[in-house]
Design a protein around this nucleic acid. Sequence first.
RNA 1: GCCGAUGUAGCUCAGUUGGUCAGAGCAGCUGAUUUGUAAUCAGCUGGCCGGGGGUUCGAAUCCCUCCAUCGGCUCCA
Length: 652
Amino acid sequence: MIRITLPDRSVKEYPEGVTGLEIAKNISEKLAKEVYAVSVNGQVYDLTFPIEKDAEIKLYTWDDAEGRHAFWHSSAHLMAEALESLYPGIKLCIGPSTDNGFYYDIDPCGHNISEKDFPEIERKMIELARQKNRFIRKEVPKEEAIDHYRKEGNEYKVELINEFEDETITFYLHGNFSDLCRGPHLPDTSYIKAVRLLNIAGAYWRGDENRKQLTRIYGISFPKQKLLDRHMEMLEEAARRDHRRLGKELELFTFSRKVGSGLPMWLPKGARLRERLENFLKKVQDDYGYDPVLSPHIGQKELYITSGHYEKYGESSFRPINTPAEGEEFMLKPMNCPHHCEIYKSSPRSYKDLPVRYAEFGTVYRYEQSGELHGLTRVRGFTQDDAHIFCRPDQLKEEFIKVIDIVFIIFNALEFSDFEIHISLRDKEEKENYIGTDENWEKAENAILEATREKGLDAKIVYGEAAFYGPKLDFMVNDALGRKWQLGTIQVDYNLPERFDLEYTGADNEKHRPVMIHRAPFGSMERFVAVMIEHTAGRFPLWLAPEQAVIITVSEKFEFYAKKVLKFLNNYDIRALVDNRNEKVGRKIRDNEMKRIPYLLVIGEKEAESGKISVRRQGEGDKGSMELEDFAAMVTNEVKKQTTSTNKPIVN
RNA sequence: GCCGAUGUAGCUCAGUUGGUCAGAGCAGCUGAUUUGUAAUCAGCUGGCCGGGGGUUCGAAUCCCUCCAUCGGCUCCA
């Protein structure tokens, strides 16, 4: 007998070779039906894996990522089986599960598979799933595995196996299908009850654009049809929140083919909204001792050669602009930091002057490949809420922490809670991608690690994500459709100060090199607003809403009173307008609700006589009548609460 | 940039195999109605069917080519 410890620390005895599935059955029949994988001493296995020794185990169901991964990974195999049967001769490449389903990359070898074929593939998958074929794990010597795929003519799998260190390769079989795979998998195919293929796209073999482009099919599957239905509803809701759609509906921004792709233009409502965000940050920056600077949109090529941007991105950026007579070469500025370095150099600096904090809402232009452009989140011209802090090495950590505080002031004010923090370090295997000495990189990376530790941030270290001149602390959020976007970023940089030969005179009367922090709490105004739109589904907090109130007249007869109310609200800086269209009240309420106006003020005979207003809060319905003064006070307070940052720092 | 899909009024979309196929709803305009908490009624105006080229007696529809958008891949200072 062996002793099995469950997550609740309870211990049970089972015969040697007991499986996860048997343990689940022993606990309850219901659990046995819902469990998909098991971990034994931290390692995830098939439910049919025999456990030979005392172990700690955990059973995974749909509610666990591990359970879903096993489910989806098995679904990927099922899809591959369906594809092989429908399109004989295709070659399988790789087919993993993801956090959101699964995909399989295949070389179609002449077959033409398109979305139109999805229903047929789905049908086939369900048909195969119902055969209830068991997933069987099989270990094969490396040579035999290579031989198998050589015979099959699948050079992709041969390449994969050749790179494995292990001498034994595992396969999973079910029915007549077999695939190179580590597992784990479901006990059998019948668990998969509902399948939906989502999209089809090209994907390079091993993510290398110089290699063959394969066909990737994405799908998702569920143990119940109901769960699939719910998932599809969720995707529809996400599509409704899509900032590209809402941006158009709410008249926030627009694109023009004639102006050029990837070049957003802000409509009045969007521009005002962006201004509010900018002013909010400016206020915070004033509190934190930042000084504004302004720099031009272009700079000499030489500037970017000095900064290193030219060497790194010159080839793939917008072509330089030449002056006709002198032949000078200018580049559209892709970053504000080189300009800010030159501003720093404009006068000699003493250690007493530091830190110097230069802030600018700087508009930059970057060439993005056409296939990359995406609404406001990936554009060719955008405005960074940029600032550069030049400080002494002994001030670095404190300054870095203050920047983290600013990021949180903003996230708090905007009720952003769903974000991840990445510590983006360099990939030491590929040092050629970065400038600067190992020593400086070590210092910069340690500064970030220390600061995040000190702030107790839950951050994930990601290697290879650093900027070419320094490591970063990045704040990432998910959009409505689950795509990840980088918002705020804080970067430590020892390299640009060196390249620009920045100096300050120390207490010892010697020249010293300052350290630089690059930071942008919003990241880019465009991307931030996009994420705001999706995050709030267009229902902005009151202080940001383009219109805070719309006055709805019960009939055109009450326009005189509506104008009076409007004037009153305007005196309190409440953004309001009058809807005096020749429509019924119900219609006006509906239209303005759809425009996501926070407060609707209905006025008719009663209100005109009593000098009150009837207040309706968005999404909450009728709130009854109110005195004008009370409403104004309520709105003013709400705005104040949203925009007041509680922890004001004392600077220098 | 690569793979695939899409492109018809301001918006959302119909338009079977090429031949009254240039349509609908919403928006807009005009009029009637003067309205009490999520769509009042009627009429009218909107389109070089993304651009260019071709096939054909005839193209929104078929072919080529640009452009843009969408979903991915690669990239992202």
